[in-house]
């Protein structure tokens, strides 16, 4: 359902994404790993048009994004963003709205749902992420883990076909990581298409169907978790995973 073709992206003279071609099937859960600065966030941001790119194309559910940014892609972007939801490392909840307010905002103003419909959906999603009791809390009144779960519920409220998550647990206290991963695991089991940038190797290994390693703007490894994580072909992957340091 997502096709990336020969994607190139540079900041000035620095090439960040180098001729990337990928294809994601519906229902697939993909972990995107790799060293810092490898271009993971950039790739994700290109996929829903938060970042423009210089070459290649991206096709999502029949809508095609091309180089040139928001102006050129205005119509496709509107459709694409309703098809893929995004969850950020720093949550980015709307600071002036409650948990419920955050979730119903887009369904009402983008999808045209009534307040009642949107609220009903929001309450259901809050329950789903284990926050049924926090509907009226403001972001600054919630822990990071709670905020991130609200952010996931907010993305789900638009009923996206796929979810892009950029290090959803990296900014959390260690004891809060579990609650967010549990939610993601449940979503994965439920059949949602997900592309997750993560450093959680357990999640990558146990939950995802496929692991991608991005290094220096190229995909250097692509396969089932067992293969990529246990028997990587590329030595840079081995270095990144710490497999060359001998038996643990």
């Amino acid at each position: 359902m997502i096709e990336v073709h020969a994607l190139c992206k540079a900041y000035g003279p620095r090439k960040i994404l180098n001729d990337i071609s990928l294809s994601f099937a519906a229902g697939q859960v993909v972990s995107l790993i790799g060293p810092s600065g490898g271009g993971k966030s950039t790739l994700l941001r290109c996929l829903n048009g938060l970042e423009s790119f210089d070459g290649g194309s991206i096709e999502i559910g029949g809508q095609k994004l091309v180089p040139g940014g928001a102006k050129v892609n205005a119509r496709a972007l509107a459709a694409v963003r309703q098809k893929v939801g995004m969850v950020f490392q720093q949550w980015n909840l709307f600071a002036h709205r409650t948990a419920l307010g955050n979730i119903i905002e887009a369904p009402i103003h983008v999808k045209g749902l009534s307040v009642a419909e949107a609220s009903e959906r929001a309450h259901r999603l809050l329950k789903q992420v284990g926050l049924g009791h926090r509907a009226d809390a403001y972001p600054h009144e919630m822990s990071g883990g709670e905020q991130q779960r609200v952010a996931i519920a907010r993305a789900l409220a638009m009923e996206p076909a796929a979810l892009l998550l950029d290090e959803p647990t990296s900014a959390l206290d260690p004891e809060r990581v579990g609650e967010v991963l549990d939610v993601l695991t449940a979503l994965a089991r439920g059949g949602l298409t997900m592309l997750v940038v993560t450093h959680e190797m357990r999640f990558a290994r146990e939950v995802s169907d496929r692991v991608l390693v991005l290094h220096g703007g190229t995909v250097i490894e692509d396969g089932p978790p067992a293969e990529v994580l246990e028997r990587p072909q590329n030595e840079r992957t081995r270095a990144f995973l710490g497999l060359d340091r001998g038996p643990r």
């Binding site: 939801g85 995004m86 980015n92 600071a95 983008v110 993305a155």
Partner: peptide
């Protein structure tokens, strides 16, 4: 991030 979150939800 507030603007990006809003855009990513499909808002113009």
């Amino acid at each position: 991030g507030q603007m990006e979150a809003a855009l990513s939800l499909g808002m113009s």
